[in-house]
Amino acid sequence: MRKASLKSGSLLHGRRAMLQGTALCLVSAALLRFSSAGVSQAAEQSAPADYAYQPVFFSHEEWLTVSSFVDRLIPADAEGPGALDSHVPEFIDRQMNLPYGHGSEWYLRPPYVKTSSALGYQFLFTPRDIYKQGLSALNNATKQRYRRPFHQLDADQRDSVIALMEKGNITLSPVPAKLLFSQILKNCKEGYFSDPIHGGNYKMGAWKMIGYPGARADFMDWVDRYGERYPLPPVSVGGYVTQGGV
């Protein structure tokens, strides 16, 4: 994106266009619910030098693929931090080891009857399945098309592949491209706006960008002051004003 990295007209027309409609509902849900030569230059340079998180669920190549994918969904720019700055891949990795990743709240039991997607999720894949099988299929597809795995593509090539996935115009198997795209996009936005206690939203950078007060006990005196920026820094569920200690 670099303002709008995906060329597809249906997804994003800039950072704020994507984030504005989802920010408050995502942060509220987050409060309640719960490197390699191959990686791109952006993925290598965006993480702090002392960032030492090691993925538990993702393999090394899966980690690089997820990191290079979310880097294109929310890249760093003048408006605020990117997905890598915000440790979104860490958030996703942690989620995959929680009941959510195992699809514990999804109905995945028989009998299996083919029906309309209008009735809800119609696949048997858990989030863990979507990532494990989908990322492998994605890398196989880009190796056929570009002779390189996804994380070794340049930014424009990754944007092109992501746009094709959004529209379902690239074939992945067994996880459909649109399903993998929507899963990563959903988790990327959740991690970007989550409480830092869950691993994402490093130093509450996304909250600061939109002026969200976080888990402050009381800010009722500001609810009617429309258009005014809240003057105090956000606070995480753990009571921290900065990431240190989270």
Rank of each mutant, 00 (worst) to 15 (best):
residue 64 L to M: 11
residue 240 Y to M: 13
residue 246 V to F: 10
residue 84 L to N: 02
residue 9 G to N: 12
residue 21 G to Q: 13
residue 111 P to M: 02
residue 112 Y to R: 07
residue 108 L to V: 01
residue 119 L to M: 11
residue 213 P to R: 03
residue 45 Q to I: 07
residue 168 G to L: 02
residue 224 D to Q: 13
residue 19 L to M: 13
residue 204 M to S: 09
residue 69 F to T: 06
residue 61 E to A: 15
residue 136 S to A: 14
residue 87 H to C: 13
residue 27 V to E: 06
residue 14 G to L: 01
residue 97 N to Q: 14
residue 187 N to I: 03
residue 8 S to P: 08
residue 192 Y to K: 04
residue 228 E to C: 09
residue 32 L to Q: 11
residue 102 H to W: 09
residue 26 L to K: 10
residue 213 P to T: 05
residue 208 K to T: 09
residue 212 Y to Q: 08
residue 206 A to T: 04
residue 105 E to Y: 06
residue 62 E to D: 13
residue 11 L to H: 09
residue 189 K to I: 14
residue 48 P to Q: 11
residue 137 A to I: 04
residue 149 P to T: 06
residue 53 Y to A: 06
residue 20 Q to L: 13
residue 58 F to L: 15
residue 158 R to S: 04
residue 48 P to N: 10
residue 183 Q to L: 10
residue 219 F to T: 12
residue 194 S to N: 07
residue 139 N to T: 07
residue 141 A to V: 10
residue 18 M to D: 08
residue 231 P to A: 09
residue 207 W to L: 02
residue 78 A to G: 07
residue 211 G to A: 06
residue 144 Q to Y: 09
residue 155 A to E: 14
residue 77 D to G: 09
residue 136 S to H: 10
residue 190 E to K: 06
residue 174 P to F: 00
residue 235 V to T: 14
residue 96 M to Q: 05
residue 94 R to W: 03
residue 30 A to P: 00
residue 15 R to F: 01
residue 64 L to I: 04
residue 237 V to F: 11
residue 113 V to T: 08
residue 153 L to M: 07
residue 77 D to H: 03
residue 107 Y to S: 14
residue 92 I to M: 14
residue 45 Q to N: 11
residue 88 V to R: 01
residue 70 V to K: 04
residue 20 Q to W: 10
residue 211 G to W: 06
residue 142 T to F: 01
residue 237 V to C: 09
residue 129 D to V: 00
residue 169 N to Y: 10
residue 215 A to Q: 07
residue 152 Q to D: 06
residue 91 F to V: 04
residue 203 K to E: 15
residue 53 Y to V: 08
residue 104 S to C: 11
residue 235 V to G: 02
residue 72 R to A: 10
residue 31 L to A: 14
residue 209 M to Y: 03
residue 110 P to V: 00
residue 121 Y to K: 01
residue 244 G to P: 02
residue 237 V to Y: 11
residue 43 A to E: 03
residue 192 Y to H: 05
residue 24 L to D: 13
residue 155 A to S: 13
residue 170 I to D: 00
residue 139 N to P: 04
residue 219 F to P: 02
residue 189 K to A: 12
residue 195 D to N: 05
residue 59 S to K: 10
residue 96 M to Y: 03
residue 6 L to Y: 08
residue 86 S to E: 13
residue 74 I to F: 02
residue 124 L to E: 07
residue 35 S to L: 13
residue 118 A to Q: 10
residue 228 E to F: 12
residue 207 W to E: 00
residue 182 S to C: 06
residue 246 V to I: 14
residue 118 A to M: 12
residue 187 N to D: 15
residue 181 F to G: 01
residue 169 N to F: 09
residue 227 G to E: 08
residue 113 V to I: 13
residue 81 P to A: 06
residue 227 G to R: 05
residue 243 Q to D: 15
residue 215 A to V: 05
residue 148 R to L: 15
residue 232 L to D: 13
residue 140 N to M: 09
residue 101 G to C: 02
residue 215 A to G: 05
residue 137 A to R: 02
residue 57 F to S: 12
residue 180 L to N: 00
residue 78 A to K: 12
residue 102 H to S: 15
residue 45 Q to C: 08
residue 101 G to Y: 00
residue 243 Q to L: 10
residue 17 A to D: 14
residue 84 L to P: 01
residue 53 Y to R: 07
residue 179 L to F: 02
residue 18 M to K: 08
residue 78 A to T: 08
residue 164 L to V: 05
residue 116 S to D: 10
residue 114 K to I: 08
residue 128 R to M: 07
residue 214 G to P: 01
residue 155 A to Q: 11
residue 69 F to I: 11
residue 89 P to N: 06
residue 147 R to N: 12
residue 243 Q to G: 14
